[in-house]
Each structure stands twice: as structure tokens, then as C-alpha cells.
Amino acid sequence: MIKQNFRVLHPGIAKALDSIWIIPFFLFCLIFEIIPIIILVKDSFFDSAGLFTLANYAGLKKPVYMLSFWNSIRLSAITALFGTVLGTFIGYSILKTKAKWLKGLFTALANVTTNFAGAPLAFAFIIILGENGVITLLFALVLNIHLYPHFQIYSYAGLVVAYTYFQLPLMILLIIPSFAGLQKEWREAAVNMGASTFTYWRYIGLPLLTPSLIAGFVLLFANAYGAYATAYTLVASNLMLVTTQIAFVVKGEVLHNPALAKAMATVSLLIMGICISIYKIAITRAPGAEK
């Protein structure tokens, strides 16, 4: 009773008491999220003597860093494309599965496999597609196709196979609600007016789905760009990627210039920022989105 009167009399104090509950969260984000990132970005513009410089960014023009960016962007774009296209068709097939238990099973498979990433995933692909892997053997013994030495799991091609694995379930889980958001009546109306399956998708279905497809693509791109564990387990230092280069600096394994790593990180954050912004804009226009 006393407490209540106190609050009625002093709304300002009540509000201050309320804010106590949110302060730890904001303080934590400030200390461990915002400030470290700001300092990282700031550091990338200064030299070791503490003077402003763009030399760290000029240093990124060296072939080794350009190659890292090129590899990372190419790998992310290709696997995002594979994931988006395959994931869309698979997602649609799952949604159109009539048997309820089968539909549930496929959705559960997509859910469970999102956990199968990183080192365990890389290792699994070594088992099946390594030089003595079961798929490699199957190709050689049954089809008489010798994957090695043309194909290597510890290479760019291997990374494409492994990355596509973790991209697929993500795209499927993202696209299913969008397909579900396409109203049945729209298709019926189109068919009643004489539209074929192709015309329906070409002029109604696909344009409506475009925001979801764009959102999916940029999300997968960002997902692949930031991946490290799979890449490190498979290729270690055989293939230059932005994340593996930065990680080398963090581990102190190579005599890289930390300021250069920070410049690399800043450029990467910019790329991520663009991806997340496109994602946020696109996802609100996707069918089935309520927010």
C-alpha cells in the first residue's frame, strides 16, 4: 500500500526505478558490443604512432588481401545463389507435400540440420568426399569416375559443397512462410482468367516472392561471408578468405599488421551492414510478413 502511494505521488521516481531494469542490458551492449566495434573502426584509421592515416586501407590493395576479399565474396555469392535457388524449390516442394507427417518430417530435418555446421560439417564432408571418402569410392568403383585429383574437398570446390549444405536449410525455413503467404485465391483468380501455371508464376507468383528471394540471398551471403569454422577446418591456410586472414591476426600466428586486419574488418562490417539493410527492407515487403 505504501509502495503504491509512493508511485502515484512520484511518477518520475517510478520511471527511474523502472529504468534500473533496462540499464544492465544497455550497459552490457555498450561495453561488449558498441564500444569495441567503434574502437576497432577507429583504430583502422590510425597508424602505430597514433596519427590519422589511410595507409591501412591502401595496404589492402596488396594481392593477398584483394584475393581474400575476392575469394570470400565469390564463395558467399555462389553458395548464396545455390542456396536461394535450390532452397526455394525445395521449400515449395515441402509446402506442397500432402502427407502431414512427411511435411513435418522435412521441416524438422531443415530445423535440425541448421545445427550441423562448422567443424562437424567440415569433418563429415572429409569423411564422404575426402580422398578415401565413401562417395569418392562409390564414384570410382561403381561409376568408374575418379574425382581425385581434379576435385579436392580441401579446396574452393570443397568449400562450395560444404557451405551450400548450411545455406539450404536456412533458405528453406525462410521461404516456406513466404510461399504460405501467397493467397490461394490469387492463383484461383488467375487460373479462372485463363492463366497457365507458367503465366501465374511469371506475372504474379514470382514478383510477389521477389522481396523474399532478395532477403534470402543477402542473408545467406552474410551468413557465408562471416563463416569461419568450416573454412578453417577444411582449407586452413590453403585458401585465403577474409575471416581466416583476420583470425590469423587474432591468433598471432602470422606476422600481419593488426591495423590492416582492422581495416579488413571495417570493410567487412560495411558489406555486412549493406546486407542487413537490404534484408530489413526486403523482408517487410515479403508475402506473409506482418511486421
Binding site: 558490443e33 569495441p36 574502437i39 569461419y228 587474432v250
Partner: peptide
């Protein structure tokens, strides 16, 4: 603040934290 971490690759988060 809770969406932002999606845009920060873990390698970069680690680099930022060990710098600070």
C-alpha cells in the same frame, strides 16, 4: 541492439574484444 550481432561476424567480434 539485438539485431546488430547478426551483422558482426564472430571473427570480427573477437578481434574487437581482444583489442579493447
Amino acid at each position: 541492439l539485438t539485431i546488430l550481432p547478426f551483422g558482426i561476424p564472430r571473427v570480427i567480434l573477437a578481434l574487437a574484444l581482444i583489442t579493447v
